[in-house]
């Protein structure tokens, strides 16, 4: 029996390409004839964003990037169309622009309780599809409870910033890898794939890693 291939994924909750990349990676993993173990890592695109940004994502991106509003609107329209092509129905009119550090802390909490993948999916859907706030402890605790985590314990953990150091460690590791944007996939600790690439690219990388792993394994 072949060993599983570990895939470490750096991602941010407010990154539209990360949700698209998640779907494309999942499609690629489905094409791969082997086991895949996924672990998500934190990446903060805009750590200086206030929890309650007073404005829309268009306002935010226009201000932050110094781009005309119509150009930002075109960008969001384009990425919304690409999301639609992978079955994701982004609703940018309802998005609450916020600081995502606390949602990353929740992802680490969920990992510690064996539920990281479910939490990641729920947070991305909450932000891009459902128009929910992902920067406040109470809102995050509701989402955590939805996937079966202990709401009161989540509130305790997030209030104490129990996993903040783990978030910062992920960010530091991303810097060590030279990661400047997300999503970023590290296959088996050896190969990097940057961005929301096509499923075939992920499948090919997984096969390459699996082949090398089996070749490197000592003969018995």
């Amino acid at each position: 029996m072949s060993e599983s291939i570990k895939v470490d994924i750096w991602s941010d909750v407010q990154c539209p390409w990360c949700y698209i990349g998640k779907r494309k990676f999942e499609a690629g993993a489905a094409l791969f004839d082997g086991e895949v173990e996924v672990e998500y890592h934190s990446f903060e695109l805009a750590p200086d964003t206030p929890v309650d940004f007073d404005g829309s994502p268009v306002d935010y991106l226009s201000q932050r990037k110094g781009l005309p509003v119509n150009q930002v609107e075109e960008m969001l329209e384009r990425v919304t169309g690409i999301a639609e092509s992978v079955g994701l129905h982004y609703d940018y009119d309802s998005v609450h622009q916020t600081n995502t550090v606390i949602s990353h802390e929740l992802l680490h909490y969920a990992k510690a309780h064996g539920r990281q993948l479910d939490m990641k999916e729920r947070l991305l859907k909450a932000y891009f599809v459902d128009g929910l706030h992902v920067g406040r402890i109470d809102d995050l605790a509701d989402l955590a409870a939805e996937i079966g985590l202990d709401r009161a314990d989540v509130v305790r953990s997030l209030t104490a910033h129990e996993f903040l150091a783990d978030v910062k460690a992920d960010v530091a590791q991303a810097n060590e890898y030279g990661i400047q944007g997300v999503p970023f996939f590290v296959i088996d600790g050896k190969y990097g794939i940057s961005g929301a690439q096509d499923p075939d690219t992920f499948a090919q990388a997984l096969r390459q890693a699996a082949t090398e792993k089996s070749t490197a394994a000592p003969a018995r």
Binding site: D12, W17, F184, Y191, G192, G195, D198
Partner: peptide
């Protein structure tokens, strides 16, 4: 081959659609 970053990983292909905070990406 990527010989500049530690730990070393090899980048497969060119970048696909992505987000970055520094401004070089659109989103």
């Amino acid at each position: 081959p990527d010989a500049t970053s530690v730990p070393t990983i090899e980048l497969l292909g060119e970048a696909g659609g992505g987000c970055c905070g520094g401004g070089s990406c659109g989103i």
